[in-house]
Amino acid sequence: MKFINSNFWDRAFRVVLGTSLVTWAFYIEDLYKLAIFAVGFIILATGIVGWCPIYSLFGWNTRTHSKRS
């Protein structure tokens, strides 16, 4: 797809980190529980979708395209 701007390892890291933060937010009883959940959810969503708005803002692309002849 054209809108994907993250490679496999970037997406895998985001999914693991986002899942960890969302899970951690369920176990803590702190004032920052909602903030940790929100950040984790955003990171998880960008990992699943493969599109990072910050990458698009700066014109970055970590996905490599193979050239087939």
Rank of each mutant, 00 (worst) to 15 (best):
P53R: 01
Y27C: 00
L34N: 09
I4K: 12
G59F: 08
Y55V: 01
R68C: 00
A12F: 14
I28G: 02
A12K: 08
N7T: 02
W9V: 06
W51A: 12
E29H: 15
F58Y: 14
L21N: 06
P53A: 07
C52K: 06
W24E: 05
F37C: 07
L17I: 12
A38I: 11
Y55A: 10
S56W: 07
A45D: 04
I54R: 07
V22F: 14
T23R: 06
F13P: 00
S66T: 14
L31T: 09
G18C: 05
L31H: 06
M1I: 09
V16K: 00
N61Y: 00
L44G: 04
A38G: 11
T46N: 15
G18N: 05
F13R: 10
T19G: 15
V16N: 05
V15T: 09
F26R: 13
R11W: 10
W9F: 14
L17A: 15
I28K: 07
F41N: 07
F26D: 09
F3E: 14
K33D: 04
F8D: 09
Y27I: 11
G40W: 10
T19W: 02
R14F: 06
V49M: 06
V15F: 07
T46P: 05
L57K: 10
L31D: 09
E29G: 08
R14V: 08
W9E: 06
F41K: 02
V16E: 03
F41I: 02
T19E: 03
L31F: 09
L57G: 01
R68N: 10
L17R: 01
I48A: 12
W60Y: 15
A38W: 01
D10P: 00
T62E: 14
R14K: 15
G50A: 07
A38C: 11
G40L: 05
I43Q: 08
L17G: 05
H65V: 15
I36A: 11
